[in-house]
């Protein structure tokens, strides 16, 4: 069990190492001739105006909020699904109630037009 996760750890180290080694190799091989025009922000040849890091559309935030609710639900679904055969009919009733509450929330967001793009 622990050795399984040790493999994942070793694998993560290897997975980090490969792109770093690749980038180091490219750093040795590639030419380095920076100039101000080359290093300016790319906007199809037009000078960029103003700051990029400004307020963004609130719609993205609404999707993120709904996502959090459903993602937590998904995290509950997995242990329930694994243990389902050992549980009685009550597990089914429980999940129906749980999903019904969530569907109610989705329906509310739908009616409030949170899912429409404004």
């Amino acid at each position: 069990m622990l050795s399984q996760y040790a493999f994942i750890g070793v694998f993560a180290i290897v997975a980090f190492a490969l792109p770093i080694i690749g980038l180091l190799m490219a750093w040795l091989l590639r030419p380095k001739k920076p100039n101000p025009a080359k290093n300016s922000t790319y906007e199809c040849g037009v000078e960029t105006i103003g700051d990029t890091w400004v307020q963004f559309k609130a719609q993205y935030y609404l999707y993120a909020l709904i996502f959090v609710v459903f993602d937590v639900e998904a995290a509950f679904v997995f242990p329930w699904a694994v243990a389902y055969n050992k549980l009685g009919v009550y597990a089914l009733v429980e999940m129906v109630l749980f999903v019904a509450i969530l569907l109610g929330g989705l329906l509310y967001a739908w009616r409030k037009q949170a899912l429409d793009w404004h």
Binding site: P19, L23, A26, L29, R30, K32, N39, T41, T52
Partner: peptide, 20 residues
């Protein structure tokens, strides 16, 4: 592998390099 690497002056360099 042998292409020049361009980092924009206004970029946030550590995050820019970590993302790939």
């Amino acid at each position: 592998l042998i292409k020049e690497d361009i980092i924009p002056d206004r970029a946030d360099r550590p995050v820019f390099n970590l993302a790939p």
